[in-house]
Amino acid sequence: MNNKVRNNKAWWLILPMLLLVAFSAIIPLMTVVNYSVQDVFDAQTRYFTGTEWFVQMLNDPTLQSALGRQFAFSLTILAIEVPLGIGIALLMPKKGWQASAILILVTLPLLIPWNVVGSIWQIFTRGDIGLMGWSLRELGYSYNITRSPLDAWITIVIMDVWHWTPLIALLCYSGLRAIPEAYYQAARIDRASRWAIFRYIQLPKLTNVLVIGILLRFMHSFMIYAEPFVLTGGGPGSSTTFLSQALAIMATAQFDVGPSAAFSLIYFLIILLVSWVFYTAIMNMQKDKKDGGA
């Protein structure tokens, strides 16, 4: 099979895309690298600083704690959204008008822009006029996201779960629809339990869409900005200031482009590593399965 002469000319077809990506991503990223080693005042006045910004950023306690919070947040929402999304997908009707109706209902949160989601939840959680804030107060819990870090955290997690679980659910739903009926027939002949069907038919067939779902959700949540910014402004204190907000404060409010560039690169490397590990791990799991003949 390896002796076949392969025709690789089709690769030229990705050239337009490559140009586009060069302009939208690669060249800006290269510029960021250039910024990260200099102290730039304007186009004419700049000084080479070498690795100084990197040393400063890596040892900055504010950024270190923002990074910790970021990981805690991303892992929390993944741990909730993935099982919940699979569960919702399993419960969704398979055909008829109910299927269309439920699909639309489930998709709705995905259509709302980030900062609008933030505003919705900001009003929703207000103690005086918000439905959730007011109800919790009436029930005797002194709910206040501007004063209690725990309340703020839980609210942001719930908000993200509300906004993005539908993505996992939709991906899983399409994955479930792609399983041929023959698998279920075979399972029925074997008198397989509902759990066995899920564990040995549905879950393995969902691996591909789950890889995409987990990757997307991880990267999205790792770069979350607008929702907590509108809802809590990163507070109380800095208890919900995530990485991109810490970065934005530095880059736009304080206008330290050099340190921000250095920090962006560290941020980029973290995302690159985690995404690669996720992808490789799950792709290998599949390969082992195929080789094992299972």
Partner: peptide, 15 residues
């Protein structure tokens, strides 16, 4: 290209 604020080390790196 001046807006990209090139320096020799980063140029060598990307090259």
């Amino acid at each position: 290209m001046s807006w990209m604020v090139w320096t020799l080390p980063t140029a060598i790196f990307f090259a």
